[in-house]
Design a protein around this nucleic acid. Structure first.
Ligand SMILES: [Mn+2]
Ligand SMILES: [Mn+2]
Ligand SMILES: [Zn+2]
Ligand SMILES: [Zn+2]
Lengths: 137, 137
DNA sequence: GGGACATTTGCAACATTATTGCAAATTTCC
DNA sequence: GGAAATTTGCAATAATGTTGCAAATGTCCC
C-alpha cells in the first residue's frame, strides 16, 4: 500500500482512486496487462476513458512500458528498471505463452546485439519470444 | 503478373480480383503494409471485409507474415523465405523508421539467439528495431 | 478541518476498427 | 457453357479509441 503512494508521488501524480487501483493491479500481476484486462478486473468501477488516460499517463511517466503484439492490442507492464519520465530504458526480453496466454517480462534476459546494415541507426529494440512458459510446461 | 498467379495457384487459392490486387501491392511495396494502407491504395475498390479476409487467408497460407507493433495495428509483409501453410519461418529482423514510418524486412539480418530461463520453450522470436533507416539518414 | 485552486473524472457524442451471417456474384472444373 | 464450390459485398452489430466539457475530487495553504 505504501509502495503505491511512493510510486505516484515520486512521479508527481496526484493520488486518485483509479490510479491507485490500476497501479495495484500491475503490482499484483506477474504478467502484462491489456486495457481490456484492466476493465475486466475493475468491473466497470472506472470509466473506459479514465483507464485509457491513466495508462497513457503511466507510460509517459515511465511507470509502465508497452509491449508490441501481433493482435491489435497493446500490452503494458511495470517498469522495474529505473525508467524516467519520457525516457524508458527497459532492456529485457518479453515472453508470450501460447498456452496460458500470459506475457511475462524476462527481467534477466537482456536484449541481444543486432547488427544493422550500413545507414541504419538503432534507437530501440523489442524482442518478443513466444512458446511455452515454465508454469505451463 | 505471372508471379502473382503462381503464388496464388501454388497455395491453392482461386484467383480473384481482390487477391490479385492486394498481392500485387505487397509485391510492389518495399515495406510492410497495414490494413489501412491497403484500403487507401485500393481506394474503396474492395469492401473492408474482403481486405480483412484476404489478409487472413494470406497469413494462413504463409504468403505474408505479420509484424508486431506497439500502436494497435498489425503490419503485414511478404514472406520471402519459404513459408508454408500453417508454418512460418521468417527468421529476420524488422526495422521501423521513426522518420518515414516505413517498416522494412531486413532479410539479411537474422534473429539472434536468446537464452531463456529454465522451463521456457521457445517457438518463435520477433525482433523489431526502430530508429532511422538508410533512406532517411 | 475548511476553502480556493488545480487536476482528474465521467458522461455523452462521435469516430474508427473489427466481426458475422447471408444472399448475390465470381471462379473453378468438367 | 453450366453445376458446384468459393468468394465477395452488404448490412447489422460489436468492439475499441478520442474529444470537449461540466462535475467531482485532490492538493495546498491557512
Ligand atoms: Mn517488460
Ligand atoms: Mn518480414
Ligand atoms: Zn504459460
Ligand atoms: Zn525512413
Amino acid at each position: 500500500m505504501e509502495a503505491l503512494l511512493n510510486i505516484l508521488k515520486k512521479n508527481q501524480l496526484s493520488v486518485t482512486e483509479s490510479r491507485k487501483k490500476i497501479l495495484e493491479l500491475f503490482l499484483n500481476s506477474e504478467g502484462a496487462l491489456a486495457h481490456a484486462d484492466i476493465e475486466k478486473s475493475t468491473d466497470g468501477s472506472y470509466d473506459r476513458v479514465t483507464v485509457y488516460r491513466t495508462l497513457q499517463t503511466f507510460v509517459e511517466k515511465g511507470i509502465i512500458h508497452n509491449i508490441p503484439t501481433t493482435d491489435n492490442s497493446i500490452l503494458y507492464a511495470l517498469c522495474k528498471d529505473n525508467c524516467e519520465a519520457g525516457h524508458h530504458h527497459d532492456n529485457h526480453v518479453h515472453f508470450i505463452c501460447d498456452v496460458c496466454d500470459k506475457t511475462i517480462c524476462l527481467e534477466h534476459v537482456s536484449i541481444p546485439e543486432v547488427k544493422l546494415p550500413k545507414g541504419f541507426t538503432q534507437k530501440q529494440t523489442d524482442v518478443v519470444v513466444s512458446g511455452i512458459c515454465d508454469a505451463c510446461k
